[in-house]
Nucleic acid binder design. Structure first.
Lengths: 338, 338
DNA sequence: GCAGGTTCCGGGAACGTTCCCGCAATCGTT
DNA sequence: AACGATTGCGGGAACGTTCCCGGAACCTGC
């Protein structure tokens, strides 16, 4: 499609390109009448500045890229809303790319953002150890970057995270104090750093109450989807093991587990209590409603946006680490009141 | 961050910028040795072409923008996956912007895409009659555009849609044949065109079986969220009206209605059968599982991508209208077997 | 009435590419 | 051996902006 340019306006008014430019950016060195003429002509010709040209000129794009590991749950979209709300207010556009839990696609997305000359990148990782070299290279090259939720391990980068360990500990403790002893942990993928932390919280809570944990039977490693949760539930029941509670890595997994357990005849929460980390709106639409640790997703987005703004303004500023406070929501699935 | 440019390579090898450019785009007019030298230097200096410059040069960005009305359900994300799968294969990048059911934000997103010089825009509307002038203007200016699912009314544009009317008709007919007579329709927002079509399907199915419909009590207009569905359920029960089935505009609404009805003591599906249009993965994680009309979302994305590719290649090509075949999934919430 | 300062505007370079044009060197043909 | 054709390369314009620089016109103050 044909764009109206500053040149067209200049030609139309038979004045110079420079003057038009000045009029449009509100430079003082233009007569008010000239400015008005230009503004009118711009409106009349339906002129839209071409940001590509100014990007080229200035070397930045007024855009921040967000790379999310998945978009099927409301998790990412809520965080992105938070990001947009603060960045839009600063006149910065937001583009989103989805890695679909695939580190190679994440890498592709990263290159896409780089080539797009975004001013900064906000990332939630697929795997805490893949693509390290790329992130290191980008960081070294001075690209502002912020990580949230699914963060890398041992990299000095700005990040906003939940207190995975403590909140897992407390939630498992609540299950124990509610009378559950045979608590199984659905760990989720091992190459997500948070999964290690949440496991640790589970282990330590169990240890505090001197409940022995056989890691090979009571901790189940799996993926991130409903189906994988359901499958874990089947394996669990199939193994004949005795259990009275589940603590899952995410609500997606927990929902998969819970629904399949019910189909297999388990009464929730009477026979099996269900609880999970990473609660989203999904936790409230299932039956029974899910007890979860609910991170303030919108706020996480806001914080991430603030951190990236800092980095953009001053790339040399120290890498801050923000921890947000996740709420423990006791709902029907655990059979425990607050 | 500092980018390595073609000039840096030229300087480094003390050859001309033109030669470097030719070597990089595989022009024949370069000696193989020279080409290799350039390629090596490019690798060594970690050169990345700056697409902003080529965009400016060629007037396009190799990017397609997708504007979605919401991102909290898996609806949009699944369609976007389909879009990405075909566009990525053509070397076209995809950026996503979320309108959050707000026509003003949609308008903003539209301008963002325009200013980004995307090669085409794929849109699902917030309102079927808002922002018409903008879409018309863009179309007149030659911007390739494709609409899906939530399409505009009476605009000759490429679009991919579901057969709202017929599938609604069939689903309601199934409810009737299953023995339900007092079927309430939760219509959803009136300014979504599909909502008119689905209402018509409902009305005609009821008419076919000579069931009188009092539109003012049996058709409820509301929004799109879980909460609005729940609220509708409350109003319904509060009104004391007798009903034995619900046909809702989307699964989101249906889920809101169903869960609240259960909380209010209604047995699903015995006392009230629930069915809805626009089924996503959410329909299968609730209890009982939801009977829905399930559009092939991924395929819708693929079709939309193909249509936009056509339009990009030849902006003058006729505006095709693709109808995809939505499946009716009978699940527990309706108490009716297929 | 003239030096100096404003005000307003046009010319042109620059951002990183691509590509057309032209020139030199080499090649192939007779 | 001499000529046109081909190959390989550099110069420079162009994409749409911004911005520096310089210059013309005007005003100010003595």
């Amino acid at each position: 499609m044909k764009h109206v340019t500053i040149k067209d306006i200049a030609r139309h008014l038979s004045i110079s390109v420079s003057t038009v430019s000045r009029a449009l950016v509100n430079d003082k060195n233009v007569r008010k009448e000239t400015k008005e003429k230009v503004l009118n002509a711009a409106r009349e010709l339906n002129y839209k500045p071409n940001p590509v040209a100014t990007n080229l000129k200035y070397g930045h794009s007024n855009t921040v890229g967000v790379i999310v590991p998945e978009m099927v749950t409301p998790f990412a979209s809520t965080v992105v809303s938070g990001i947009q709300s603060v960045l839009y207010a600063h006149g910065i556009k937001v583009i989103v790319a989805d890695s679909r839990e695939n580190p190679d696609m994440e890498r592709e997305n990263l290159r896409l953002m780089e080539q797009f000359m975004v001013d900064g990148i906000i990332v939630s990782l697929c795997s805490y150890r893949k693509n390290r070299e790329d992130y290191l290279r980008l960081q070294k090259a001075g690209m502002p970057m912020v990580f949230y939720d699914r963060i890398p391990y041992g990299l000095d980068v700005p990040q906003v995270l939940v207190d995975d360990y403590r909140k897992s500990f407390f939630l498992v403790e609540k299950l124990i104090l509610g009378g559950r002893k045979k608590i199984v942990h659905i760990q989720g993928p091992e190459d997500i750093y948070n999964s290690k932390e949440r496991l640790k919280g589970y282990m330590d809570a169990m240890a505090k109450y001197k409940i022995p944990v056989n890691e090979s039977t009571m901790v189940i490693r799996t993926g991130m989807t409903f189906d994988e949760g359901a499958e874990a539930a089947e394996r669990l029941v199939g193994s004949g093991m005795d259990f009275d509670a589940i603590f899952a890595f995410t609500d997606t997994l927990a929902i998969g587990v819970m629904n399949r357990l019910r189909e297999l005849g388990k009464r929730i929460p009477d026979e099996v209590a269900i609880a999970s980390f990473s609660g989203t709106e999904l936790s409230t639409i299932v039956y029974p409603k899910l007890t979860t640790v609910e991170p303030p997703l919108f706020q996480m987005g806001e914080k991430a946006a603030e951190l990236i703004l800092e980095k953009i303004k001053n790339p040399a500023c120290p890498n801050r680490k923000e921890t947000v406070n996740a709420e423990i929501r006791m709902r029907e699935s655990s059979g425990i009141r607050d």
